[in-house]
Amino acid sequence: MAILETARFDIPLLATGQAHKELFHNEALARIDFLLHPVVQAVESDPSNIVPSPGQSWLVAPGAVNDWLGRDDHIAGWTENGWLFIVPQTVMRIYVKSSESYAVYRGSWQSAETVTNPAGGAVVDSEARLAIDSILSVLVAQGILLSTS
């Protein structure tokens, strides 16, 4: 019998008469748990550098080694049964705890950029500068941009 999976995240589906349905069901729930509110600890290329706990996940950096070899850009989640890998989808957004910002998947993971507040210049428009500073503050607070401080 062919294993049935969802098209985007390979979440196992149950089939009529399928043996060990609880294994497939638990695998599906584990994947959903990692995807429901996606948060990763950090971006890492070597799993031997970390001591994972069940429920924690990482973004697999390019050039991954050991258990993550060939899994570049995947989300690697640790479960009680070992690593579970999820292939990201275009414009998927995930929160990276180590940088306190978001990364977006566009063929590869792209992290928030650091921008500086306006300073200097021949003509200073204090009202425009205040408006820009306010916009930048909101974007930093949302994790869309990184703070320079």
Rank of each mutant, 00 (worst) to 15 (best):
A2H: 15
A2N: 15
L4R: 11
L4G: 08
R8K: 15
F9I: 03
I11W: 00
P12V: 00
G17E: 10
G17Q: 10
Q18V: 04
E22I: 09
E22V: 07
E22F: 07
F24N: 05
E27L: 06
A30W: 07
I32C: 09
I32L: 12
D33K: 11
L35G: 02
P38F: 01
S45N: 07
S45T: 03
D46R: 06
P52W: 01
S53K: 09
P54H: 01
Q56N: 02
V60R: 06
A61W: 02
P62I: 00
G63H: 02
D67E: 07
L69F: 02
G70M: 02
H74E: 13
H74Y: 14
A76Q: 01
G77Q: 01
N81F: 04
G82S: 00
W83Q: 03
L84I: 02
V91L: 12
V91T: 13
R93C: 11
R93L: 10
I94R: 08
I94H: 05
I94M: 07
Y95W: 14
Y95T: 09
A103C: 08
Y105S: 07
G107S: 02
S108W: 12
W109F: 08
Q110H: 11
Q110M: 08
A112S: 12
N117I: 10
A119E: 12
A122D: 15
D125E: 11
S126G: 09
R129K: 15
I132Q: 13
D133W: 04
V138N: 13
L139A: 15
A141W: 14
